[in-house]
Amino acid sequence: MGLDDTERERLRERFKEYGRTGDRAIRDQLIEAHLRLAEHLARRFSNRGVALDDLIQVAALGLVKAVERFDPERGLEFSTFATPTIVGELKRHFRDKGWAVRVPRRVQELHVEINTLVGELTQRLGRSPTIAELARLAGTSEEDVLEAMEAAQAYRSASIDAPTGTGDEDSRGLAAQLGDEDVNLFDAENRMLIADLLTALPKREQLMLRLRFYDGMTQSQIADRLGISQMHVSRLLAKSLAMLRERVEATER
Protein backbone atom coordinates (compact mmCIF):
# COMPACT_ATOMS: atom_id res chain seq x y z
CA MET A 1 0.00 0.00 0.00
CA GLY A 2 2.67 2.44 -1.03
CA LEU A 3 4.77 2.34 2.09
CA ASP A 4 8.47 2.85 1.59
CA ASP A 5 11.09 0.58 3.12
CA THR A 6 11.99 2.72 6.13
CA GLU A 7 8.33 3.20 7.00
CA ARG A 8 7.76 -0.53 6.65
CA GLU A 9 10.71 -1.28 8.90
CA ARG A 10 9.49 1.23 11.47
CA LEU A 11 6.05 -0.39 11.56
CA ARG A 12 7.63 -3.83 11.89
CA GLU A 13 9.42 -2.59 15.00
CA ARG A 14 6.18 -1.17 16.33
CA PHE A 15 4.47 -4.53 15.81
CA LYS A 16 7.22 -6.25 17.79
CA GLU A 17 6.84 -3.70 20.56
CA TYR A 18 3.09 -4.22 20.60
CA GLY A 19 3.62 -7.97 20.75
CA ARG A 20 5.85 -7.52 23.81
CA THR A 21 3.88 -4.87 25.68
CA GLY A 22 0.28 -5.14 24.47
CA ASP A 23 0.23 -1.34 24.74
CA ARG A 24 -3.11 -0.05 23.44
CA ALA A 25 -1.62 3.23 22.28
CA ILE A 26 0.74 1.35 19.97
CA ARG A 27 -2.11 -0.82 18.79
CA ASP A 28 -4.11 2.29 17.90
CA GLN A 29 -1.15 3.75 15.97
CA LEU A 30 -0.79 0.53 14.01
CA ILE A 31 -4.48 0.51 13.18
CA GLU A 32 -4.36 4.11 12.00
CA ALA A 33 -1.30 3.46 9.90
CA HIS A 34 -3.19 0.80 7.96
CA LEU A 35 -6.64 2.36 7.72
CA ARG A 36 -6.09 3.02 4.01
CA LEU A 37 -5.80 -0.70 3.43
CA ALA A 38 -9.17 -1.22 5.12
CA GLU A 39 -10.74 1.55 3.05
CA HIS A 40 -9.28 0.18 -0.14
CA LEU A 41 -10.74 -3.27 0.53
CA ALA A 42 -14.10 -1.85 1.64
CA ARG A 43 -14.42 -0.09 -1.73
CA ARG A 44 -14.23 -3.43 -3.49
CA PHE A 45 -17.49 -4.36 -1.78
CA SER A 46 -19.36 -1.13 -2.45
CA ASN A 47 -22.38 -0.94 -4.78
CA ARG A 48 -23.98 -3.89 -3.07
CA GLY A 49 -26.63 -1.95 -1.26
CA VAL A 50 -24.61 -1.14 1.83
CA ALA A 51 -23.32 2.38 2.42
CA LEU A 52 -19.56 2.70 1.91
CA ASP A 53 -19.16 4.32 5.33
CA ASP A 54 -20.65 1.24 6.92
CA LEU A 55 -18.38 -1.03 4.91
CA ILE A 56 -15.33 0.93 5.96
CA GLN A 57 -16.34 0.43 9.57
CA VAL A 58 -16.66 -3.31 9.03
CA ALA A 59 -13.29 -3.38 7.28
CA ALA A 60 -11.77 -1.38 10.14
CA LEU A 61 -13.03 -4.01 12.55
CA GLY A 62 -11.27 -6.66 10.49
CA LEU A 63 -8.17 -4.51 10.57
CA VAL A 64 -8.29 -4.32 14.37
CA LYS A 65 -8.45 -8.10 14.54
CA ALA A 66 -5.57 -8.42 12.09
CA VAL A 67 -3.40 -6.03 14.07
CA GLU A 68 -4.10 -7.95 17.24
CA ARG A 69 -3.28 -11.31 15.71
CA PHE A 70 -0.31 -10.41 13.51
CA ASP A 71 3.00 -11.99 14.45
CA PRO A 72 5.89 -10.04 12.85
CA GLU A 73 8.34 -12.84 13.68
CA ARG A 74 6.85 -14.99 10.95
CA GLY A 75 8.28 -12.74 8.28
CA LEU A 76 4.98 -12.10 6.53
CA GLU A 77 4.09 -8.60 5.31
CA PHE A 78 1.29 -7.16 7.41
CA SER A 79 -0.83 -6.32 4.35
CA THR A 80 -0.49 -9.91 3.12
CA PHE A 81 -1.64 -11.15 6.49
CA ALA A 82 -4.39 -8.59 7.01
CA THR A 83 -6.08 -8.71 3.60
CA PRO A 84 -7.80 -12.09 4.03
CA THR A 85 -8.86 -11.17 7.56
CA ILE A 86 -10.45 -7.91 6.44
CA VAL A 87 -12.06 -9.45 3.36
CA GLY A 88 -13.38 -12.25 5.55
CA GLU A 89 -14.94 -9.70 7.86
CA LEU A 90 -16.60 -7.94 4.93
CA LYS A 91 -17.92 -11.18 3.48
CA ARG A 92 -19.26 -12.25 6.83
CA HIS A 93 -21.02 -8.91 7.09
CA PHE A 94 -22.93 -9.64 3.90
CA ARG A 95 -23.57 -13.26 4.73
CA ASP A 96 -24.64 -13.25 8.38
CA LYS A 97 -25.85 -9.89 9.34
CA GLY A 98 -28.29 -9.39 6.52
CA TRP A 99 -30.99 -6.86 7.15
CA ALA A 100 -31.29 -7.62 10.84
CA VAL A 101 -28.23 -5.69 11.81
CA ARG A 102 -27.51 -3.40 8.90
CA VAL A 103 -28.82 -0.11 10.17
CA PRO A 104 -28.41 2.53 7.50
CA ARG A 105 -26.39 5.54 8.50
CA ARG A 106 -29.44 7.75 7.94
CA VAL A 107 -31.35 5.81 10.62
CA GLN A 108 -28.42 5.86 13.02
CA GLU A 109 -28.19 9.62 12.69
CA LEU A 110 -31.91 10.01 13.19
CA HIS A 111 -31.61 7.81 16.27
CA VAL A 112 -29.15 10.25 17.82
CA GLU A 113 -31.25 13.23 16.83
CA ILE A 114 -34.45 11.74 18.26
CA ASN A 115 -32.72 11.11 21.55
CA THR A 116 -31.78 14.75 21.85
CA LEU A 117 -35.25 15.90 20.84
CA VAL A 118 -36.92 13.65 23.41
CA GLY A 119 -34.91 15.33 26.16
CA GLU A 120 -35.75 18.82 24.94
CA LEU A 121 -39.43 18.14 24.35
CA THR A 122 -39.93 16.33 27.65
CA GLN A 123 -38.55 19.35 29.41
CA ARG A 124 -40.56 21.85 27.40
CA LEU A 125 -43.88 19.98 27.54
CA GLY A 126 -43.51 18.62 31.05
CA ARG A 127 -44.49 15.17 29.73
CA SER A 128 -43.24 12.53 27.38
CA PRO A 129 -43.75 13.67 23.77
CA THR A 130 -45.81 11.75 21.22
CA ILE A 131 -44.21 10.12 18.21
CA ALA A 132 -46.06 12.60 15.97
CA GLU A 133 -44.51 15.53 17.84
CA LEU A 134 -41.05 14.05 17.49
CA ALA A 135 -41.57 13.38 13.78
CA ARG A 136 -42.75 16.91 13.16
CA LEU A 137 -39.76 18.40 14.95
CA ALA A 138 -37.28 16.11 13.22
CA GLY A 139 -38.94 16.82 9.89
CA THR A 140 -39.53 13.15 9.17
CA SER A 141 -42.27 10.53 9.23
CA GLU A 142 -43.59 8.73 12.28
CA GLU A 143 -42.45 5.41 10.78
CA ASP A 144 -38.91 6.74 10.54
CA VAL A 145 -38.98 7.80 14.18
CA LEU A 146 -40.12 4.33 15.25
CA GLU A 147 -37.45 2.70 13.14
CA ALA A 148 -34.84 4.98 14.65
CA MET A 149 -35.97 4.02 18.15
CA GLU A 150 -35.57 0.36 17.31
CA ALA A 151 -32.11 1.06 15.91
CA ALA A 152 -30.79 1.33 19.47
CA GLN A 153 -31.30 -2.37 19.55
CA ALA A 154 -30.20 -3.28 16.08
CA TYR A 155 -26.70 -2.06 16.06
CA ARG A 156 -25.93 -3.79 19.27
CA SER A 157 -27.77 -6.93 18.49
CA ALA A 158 -24.78 -9.15 19.20
CA SER A 159 -24.88 -8.22 22.85
CA ILE A 160 -28.50 -7.60 23.72
CA ASP A 161 -29.18 -11.05 24.95
CA ALA A 162 -25.76 -11.79 26.35
CA PRO A 163 -25.80 -12.57 30.05
CA THR A 164 -25.30 -9.43 32.06
CA GLY A 165 -23.32 -11.19 34.75
CA THR A 166 -25.58 -9.80 37.43
CA GLY A 167 -28.15 -12.54 37.44
CA ASP A 168 -27.87 -13.66 41.02
CA GLU A 169 -29.01 -11.55 43.84
CA ASP A 170 -26.00 -11.85 46.09
CA SER A 171 -23.66 -9.08 45.59
CA ARG A 172 -23.61 -5.40 45.89
CA GLY A 173 -26.17 -3.35 47.66
CA LEU A 174 -26.65 0.36 47.34
CA ALA A 175 -23.88 1.20 49.80
CA ALA A 176 -21.23 -0.68 47.83
CA GLN A 177 -21.90 1.59 44.89
CA LEU A 178 -21.04 4.74 46.75
CA GLY A 179 -17.74 6.42 47.44
CA ASP A 180 -16.17 6.23 50.89
CA GLU A 181 -17.10 9.67 52.02
CA ASP A 182 -20.75 8.88 51.47
CA VAL A 183 -20.82 5.84 53.70
CA ASN A 184 -21.98 7.76 56.75
CA LEU A 185 -25.01 9.00 54.90
CA PHE A 186 -26.17 5.48 54.56
CA ASP A 187 -26.50 4.30 58.10
CA ALA A 188 -29.21 1.81 58.87
CA GLU A 189 -31.85 4.41 59.52
CA ASN A 190 -31.38 6.16 56.23
CA ARG A 191 -31.27 2.90 54.38
CA MET A 192 -34.65 1.96 55.77
CA LEU A 193 -35.99 5.34 54.83
CA ILE A 194 -34.74 4.92 51.28
CA ALA A 195 -36.18 1.42 51.09
CA ASP A 196 -39.58 2.77 52.15
CA LEU A 197 -39.47 5.62 49.70
CA LEU A 198 -38.32 3.34 46.88
CA THR A 199 -41.36 1.13 47.12
CA ALA A 200 -43.54 4.24 46.87
CA LEU A 201 -42.02 5.22 43.52
CA PRO A 202 -43.68 4.25 40.22
CA LYS A 203 -42.51 0.83 39.07
CA ARG A 204 -40.51 2.02 36.08
CA GLU A 205 -38.44 4.26 38.34
CA GLN A 206 -38.02 1.47 40.88
CA LEU A 207 -36.72 -0.82 38.18
CA MET A 208 -34.14 1.70 36.99
CA LEU A 209 -32.80 2.29 40.50
CA ARG A 210 -32.78 -1.43 41.22
CA LEU A 211 -30.82 -2.29 38.08
CA ARG A 212 -28.35 0.54 38.53
CA PHE A 213 -27.71 0.45 42.28
CA TYR A 214 -28.87 -2.91 43.55
CA ASP A 215 -27.77 -5.12 40.66
CA GLY A 216 -24.85 -2.77 40.04
CA MET A 217 -25.33 -2.63 36.27
CA THR A 218 -23.85 0.23 34.29
CA GLN A 219 -26.10 2.46 32.19
CA SER A 220 -24.95 0.79 29.01
CA GLN A 221 -25.54 -2.68 30.45
CA ILE A 222 -29.08 -1.64 31.35
CA ALA A 223 -29.56 -0.24 27.84
CA ASP A 224 -28.35 -3.51 26.31
CA ARG A 225 -30.52 -5.63 28.55
CA LEU A 226 -33.67 -3.67 27.81
CA GLY A 227 -32.87 -2.91 24.17
CA ILE A 228 -33.21 0.83 24.56
CA SER A 229 -30.70 3.61 24.10
CA GLN A 230 -28.31 4.61 26.83
CA MET A 231 -29.67 8.14 26.67
CA HIS A 232 -33.14 6.88 27.49
CA VAL A 233 -31.70 4.93 30.44
CA SER A 234 -29.85 8.01 31.59
CA ARG A 235 -33.00 10.10 31.36
CA LEU A 236 -35.08 7.57 33.29
CA LEU A 237 -32.40 7.28 35.98
CA ALA A 238 -32.16 11.03 36.38
CA LYS A 239 -35.93 11.20 36.72
CA SER A 240 -35.97 8.36 39.25
CA LEU A 241 -33.27 9.98 41.38
CA ALA A 242 -35.06 13.33 41.23
CA MET A 243 -38.28 11.73 42.43
CA LEU A 244 -36.43 9.97 45.22
CA ARG A 245 -34.71 13.19 46.24
CA GLU A 246 -38.00 15.04 46.27
CA ARG A 247 -39.45 12.49 48.63
CA VAL A 248 -36.42 12.45 50.91
CA GLU A 249 -36.64 16.21 51.22
CA ALA A 250 -40.35 16.02 51.89
CA THR A 251 -39.77 13.70 54.86
CA GLU A 252 -37.13 16.02 56.28
CA ARG A 253 -39.44 18.96 56.48
Partner: peptide, 24 residues
Protein backbone atom coordinates in the same frame (compact mmCIF):
# COMPACT_ATOMS: atom_id res chain seq x y z
CA UNK B 1 -42.04 -8.01 17.18
CA UNK B 2 -40.81 -4.89 18.97
CA UNK B 3 -41.08 -2.76 15.86
CA UNK B 4 -44.63 -3.94 15.21
CA UNK B 5 -45.55 -3.24 18.82
CA UNK B 6 -44.08 0.26 18.54
CA UNK B 7 -46.02 0.96 15.34
CA UNK B 8 -49.29 -0.12 16.92
CA UNK B 9 -48.56 1.76 20.14
CA UNK B 10 -48.14 4.88 18.05
CA UNK B 11 -51.48 4.23 16.35
CA UNK B 12 -53.19 4.33 19.71
CA UNK B 13 -51.38 7.52 20.72
CA UNK B 14 -48.89 6.20 23.23
CA UNK B 15 -46.21 8.72 24.19
CA UNK B 16 -42.51 8.14 23.52
CA UNK B 17 -42.02 6.75 27.04
CA UNK B 18 -45.01 4.44 26.66
CA UNK B 19 -43.80 3.23 23.26
CA UNK B 20 -40.41 2.47 24.82
CA UNK B 21 -42.13 0.62 27.67
CA UNK B 22 -44.07 -1.55 25.27
CA UNK B 23 -41.01 -2.28 23.15
CA UNK B 24 -39.16 -3.39 26.27
Amino acid sequence: ARLTAAGLANRVDFTYDEVEDLRI
